[in-house]
C-alpha cells in the first residue's frame, strides 16, 4: 500500500473540505483497503467517515426506510424496523459477504462503489430509493451509470439512502460460492399496480428489466416472468459464468423472487 495522509473529520462539512484532488473517502474499508493493497488505488489522503456520528443509523416512517451512509450491513440485517417495513432489504443486507465483512461494510460504501455484482444497488433501484449527498439528492434511476461508476461528483459524500416501502418484495441471489457476490441477483418490488425489477451481477451495472416489470404489473405471479427471456447482449461473461448462463439465471432468479415475495 502506498503512503497517504489520514484524516478523521468530525462532520460531513469537514470531510467535504478535505475531499479534494487525489483524496479518497473511507467507509468500512472492506473494498478500499484491499484495493489500496493491490495499488489499484493510491490516494494521497484518506478521509475516514467512521467517526462522523450522524452518518450511521436507521429511520423508518411507514413510507420509507432511511439508512445512514455509515450504517453497517449487519445493522440493517438485524434491524427490527427494517425487518418490519422491508424484510427483503434486511435479508439482502444479511446475504452480503460473510459476517465479518457485514460488521464493517456500509450501505454508502457499497452504493458509491457500484460493483457490478454488489447487492445493495439492486435494492436501491427496485425500491426506487433516493440517495442523499452533501450536495443534493439523486433518484435511483439516475444514479448508477456503469461499471463502478455513479452520478457522484469528485469528493461528493453520500449521507443517507431512503428506500420506499413496497407492498411486497423479495431479493434472490445466485451466489458466487467463493466470494458470495451475486453471479445474478434479482430484486422484485410490488408497489401495488407498479412493479420494479432490478437485476445485479448480470451486466456491467445494475439495470431494470422492463419486460418483467410490465408482465408483473399486469399479474404479480411467478408464471408472468417464467417465460420472459433476458437478452444476452452486453451481459457479463467471465470465468464464473457465460452471458448465456447469466441471461438464463435472470429469469430463474426473477421467478423465485416473485415466489418468495408471495410467501
Amino acid at each position: 500500500m502506498h503512503a497517504f495522509k489520514y484524516h478523521r473529520p468530525a462532520s460531513v462539512n469537514d470531510a467535504a473540505a478535505l475531499a479534494k484532488g487525489e483524496a479518497k473517502l473511507l467507509a468500512g474499508g472492506q473494498t478500499l483497503v484491499q484495493t489500496m493493497k493491490l495499488r489499484l488505488a493510491s490516494p494521497s489522503d484518506i478521509i475516514d467517515l467512521g467517526t462522523i456520528k450522524d452518518l450511521a443509523g436507521i429511520k423508518s416512517d411507514g413510507k420509507s426506510v432511511t439508512v445512514g451512509a455509515m450504517t453497517r450491513h449487519a445493522e440493517v440485517a438485524h434491524s427490527a424496523d427494517v425487518k418490519k417495513a422491508i424484510p427483503a432489504l434486511a435479508a439482502l443486507a444479511g446475504m452480503i459477504g460473510d459476517r465479518q465483512v457485514r460488521a464493517m461494510g456500509t450501505c454508502g460504501g457499497s452504493i458509491a462503489n457500484n460493483d457490478p455484482a454488489a447487492d445493495y444497488p439492486a435494492a436501491v433501484l427496485a425500491l426506487n430509493a433516493t440517495i442523499t449527498t452533501n450536495k443534493g439528492k439523486y433518484e435511483a434511476d439516475k444514479f448508477f451509470k456503469g461499471m463502478f461508476t455513479t452520478a457522484l461528483g469528485a469528493g461528493e459524500i453520500i449521507t443517507s439512502v431512503s428506500f420506499q416501502v413496497p407492498k411486497r418484495a423479495a431479493y434472490t441471489k445466485f451466489k458466487n460460492p467463493a466470494s458470495r457476490f451475486a453471479i445474478v441477483g434479482v430484486f422484485v418490488a410490488d408497489f401495488g399496480g407498479s412493479v420494479r425489477v432490478a437485476v445485479t451481477g448480470a451486466g456491467p451495472a445494475v439495470f431494470r428489466q422492463a419486460d418483467m416489470e410490465k408482465a408483473l404489473g399486469a399479474k404479480f405471479a411467478p408464471e408472468s416472468v417464467a417465460n420472459i427471456k433476458q437478452k444476452q447482449d452486453g451481459l457479463n461473461s467471465d470465468m464464473h459464468a457465460s452471458a448465456e448462463y447469466r441471461a438464463h439465471l435472470v429469469t430463474v432468479m426473477a421467478r423465485r423472487a416473485v415466489e418468495a415475495a408471495l410467501r
Binding site: 474499508g29 493493497k37 475516514d48 460473510d98 465479518q100 460488521a103
Partner: peptide
C-alpha cells in the same frame, strides 16, 4: 491478506472483524 480467509479475525468493540482489512487508525 485479501479479506477472504478469516485467519486474522479479532473482536473489535464486541464484533468479529478481519484485521487485515482494517487500518490501525480505524
Amino acid at each position: 491478506d485479501t479479506a477472504q480467509c478469516g485467519a486474522c479475525t479479532v473482536s473489535m468493540n464486541g464484533k468479529a472483524v478481519k484485521s487485515c482489512s482494517i487500518l490501525a487508525m480505524q
